[in-house]
Structure formats: C-alpha cells, structure tokens
Design a protein around this nucleic acid. Structure first.
Length: 382
RNA sequence: GGGUCGGUGGCGGAGUGGUCAAUCGCAGCUGACUGUAAAUCAGCCGAUUUCGGUCUACGGGGGUUCGAAUCCCUCCCGGCCCA
C-alpha cells in the first residue's frame, strides 16, 4: 500500500496506492469537512493542484446523512471528486465539541454521545459505528475513532484518553475486517485504515500508544492532538520520536497539521501526510501566505533548513487599501495573476464571497507548491 | 411670518438632574485562527498620559443647581404643519 522511494535524512518520499489512484508523499489534503472545501468548488480545487481531500464522518452523518450519500453512489459521486478521499472518524469532534464544551456530549468507553450542535439531538458514535459510516461513504482512507484530549489535561487524564484510543482502535480494526468481509471488498479495493497515536506532550505515553496500535496493525498511524505545547512551542522531540515508533512501511499522518513551518518540520521528522483548515480558514479570514520574494529554491529540509521561507499578510489591514501591487509576485494563482492587493482588500471590505474564494485558492496553491518542493527536494537528494 | 418637533462621538441611534467620556449597531484599527459549531472570535475605537489619572466634550452663548447631555432663557441650524 505504501512504498518508500526516497529519503533525505529522516524526511521521506514514497507512493501510496489507493482505490482511486496513487499519491506521492509527502502530501497535503485540504479539509472538506461537510463534503466541500468552504468557498471552493471542484474546479477551483483541481485548478490549484489539490488531489486528496479530507471529509468528516460525524459531520456528513449529520448532514446530509449517510443514507443520502449512499443513494448518491458514495461520497466521491456525491461530491464529484474522484481523487482519493480520506475521512476523519469524528474523533476530532470528541475534542472540539465535547472536551472543550462538556455539555455538548459525553465520552464513555463504550461510545461517544454527541449532542448535535445543529438541534441538540443525541447521536451515539461508537468505534464500530464510525467505521461503518466510513465504509458507507466509500472513502479511500479511513481513521479510527479516537479520544483527543487537550494537551492541557493532566498526564493521568491523557493516559485515560490513550487507553480509550487503544481500546477503540482495536474495536475499529475488528469492525473494519468485518465490513471488508460483509461487503466482499477485494484486497486491492480496500480502504486504508489509520490508527491515531495520542499521548499529548508525553513521550512515554506516545510510545505506549504507538506500540499498542502497531500490535493491532494499521496501514498508517496518525499523530493526534496538538503538536504545540502550552507555551506555543513546537514539540519537536515528541514529533520526531513518535515518527520513529511507526514501521517504515506504514504511512505517517500528521492530523490537523499545520502552518507551513510546522509541515516542513514534520516532513523533516519523517511524516508523510497532512491536513489542516489553516490555508482555507485563514484565507477566508483575510490572511494570505506569501512566498518570500528573496527565497530562491533553497532547501527547506536538513541543516540548511530555511526557517522563514514565507510570510503572511492580513489583507484587511488598512495599509493595503491603496496598494495596487500583486498579492504575491512569485505566485501564478488566479488571484495573483489578475488582481491587486487593493482590489482584494476591497472585496473583503465588501464581504463578497469572491474574496474568500480567491484567498482560499491562493493559500491552497501555496501549500500545494510547498509540498511539491518538499517532494522534489527529498527525491533529488539521493 | 406663526406653530411644532428636533440638533449627542466618523455615521445611525440610546440616554432625559448625579453611578456618563456617554448603552448599542455600523464604519475604522489591530490581533487570533492548526483531524472546521469559524464568511468566525477577541481587543481597541474624544485628547493626552509615568496607564493611576488628567483635560475638553452631548449645536453656540448665558443661567438654575452642591452637581446638567438631561431643567430655564436666548441665538443659530434642520424636519414637518399652517399662512
């Protein structure tokens, strides 16, 4: 399923075979949580080089509902997106909805009880249910339901989350095998399945979790929860050590990562796959990623690592009102080719959706170009 | 010309004797955003400041009062009605 083809120190590149195509690692997937990348359509996405995207089990289960997606012929047909799709399990919602806001639901060893943010209705998502939904969606890659604790929790509470994550991972794997048989899915057509390593900032918990998950056996392993400590520092040691715990022939998926700088560091530590709302959300909010005009094709990885290879701008800032220069001269996206900073500033001030679309596309293009540069650098290393 | 209602910070618009430098909305300024409850959220938004204050302020002027954006007089300006 995954074939490693090149390495530069601990950074690596390879090919993943999915039922909807082959992907070169490392790669980035925008989040299409509810079955669409906010403010963009499929042509916009392919126009900036996006291939795989991430959808969300829990959100799609709520809206439009699993049955409807099945009727549409699966999530690929429904979205008209025929590149590989990865579904997140709903594990993140355990964190974002419940851990952050206990009245939004309840976590037990048996399952998660979500109170829908839409209407307050209760929905029970068990590890089995999450896997069933992901099969119903028909994705190429799926993720086990996990318990994502905030890094600020005590070690004891994070340990609890690790134990629950391991317990659920085992049940997910059993359900996964069961579904493969029930649905008579050929080995070549089976979706890949990922476990998720929890443990917060504690190397020993991460190690314990990784070992338990490797025992169960998955196609890939995720780095779960934040990779930033309470002071906002990148937890490089934990990120690096956790990667080492994952078999070399398995995929390493950094869930929810990250800023461009974070991604470079993760790639350097040996991680292969990324997804994050940053490029699209921040784009919609007016923050744009810019290539540093001074940056030649310098290596991003290794000792010579270029730390500040980019900068950001908030196009809403008043100083751009009369700035008629392009957003980023080094970019050839639709926004940068056609419009000035002043014009984009105006589009945001007028709150027209076109502003968000252009900005999100630009940021995604930035991410896609970055990933391509990273792949090239690793491949050209040998 | 007569009557009447009104003039509040960039705009709209509360307040109608003290707790008002003045609710709130918009605009403006600045942040934040990491497996998306986010086209969202937070802070600032009279002037100065050693951030504790200090000063000038509710159309202009005058007055009543311990105290006025709030009451009285007068002037200026605007809306409406009547001639």
């Amino acid at each position: 399923m995954f074939k490693l083809t090149a390495k530069k120190n601990t950074a690596r590149s390879g090919q993943v075979k999915t039922k909807n195509g082959v992907l070169s690692t490392p790669f980035f997937m925008p989040d299409a949580t509810r079955g669409f990348v906010k403010s963009l359509d499929c042509d916009d996405l392919s126009g900036v080089g996006v291939s795989p995207v991430v959808v969300n089990t829990y959100h799609l289960y709520l809206q439009p509902g699993t049955e409807l997606v099945k009727k549409a012929g699966g999530i690929h047909e429904f979205m008209n997106w025929h590149a590989p799709l990865l579904s997140d399990s709903g594990g993140y919602q355990v964190f974002s909805l419940i851990h952050k806001n206990p009245e939004m639901g309840k976590i037990t060893d048996e399952a998660v009880i979500f109170k829908s943010p839409l209407d307050g209705s209760k929905h029970i998502i068990s590890p089995e249910k999450s896997i069933q939904i992901q099969f119903d969606l028909g994705v190429d890659m799926m993720v086990v339901l996990d318990d994502v604790p905030p890094n600020t929790y005590t070690k004891e509470k994070i340990k609890d989350a690790v134990e629950r994550t391991v317990l659920w991972a085992g049940r997910c794997k059993v359900e996964y095998e069961k579904q493969l048989k029930m649905r008579k899915i050929a080995a070549s057509k089976r979706p890949l399945i990922f476990g998720v390593i929890q443990g917060g900032g504690y190397a020993d918990l991460r190690k314990y979790c990784a070992e338990k998950l490797v025992e169960i056996g998955f196609d890939g392993y995720g780095f779960g929860a934040r990779h930033i400590d309470a002071d906002g520092n990148f937890m490089e040691d934990v990120v690096r050590e956790t990667a080492k715990l994952i078999p070399e022939n398995a995929l390493r998926f950094a869930l929810g990562v990250g800023t461009p700088a974070d991604i470079v560091k993760f790639v350097e530590c040996g991680w292969d796959m990324f997804d994050c709302v940053i490029p699209t959300r921040e784009g919609r909010h007016g923050r744009l990623f810019l290539r540093k005009s001074t940056s030649p094709p310098t290596p991003l990885l290794g000792k010579e690592r270029v730390v500040d290879f980019y900068e950001t701008m908030n196009i809403n800032n008043g100083k751009f009102r009369e700035d008629f220069s392009p957003i980023d001269v080094a970019c050839d996206c639709q926004l940068c080719k056609n419009y000035s900073r002043s014009y984009l500033h105006h589009l945001f001030a007028m709150k027209d959706p076109i502003a968000m679309r252009l900005a999100a596309m630009h940021n995604l293009k930035f991410y896609m170009d970055l990933m391509e540069k990273l792949r090239e650098e690793i491949i050209n290393c040998k």
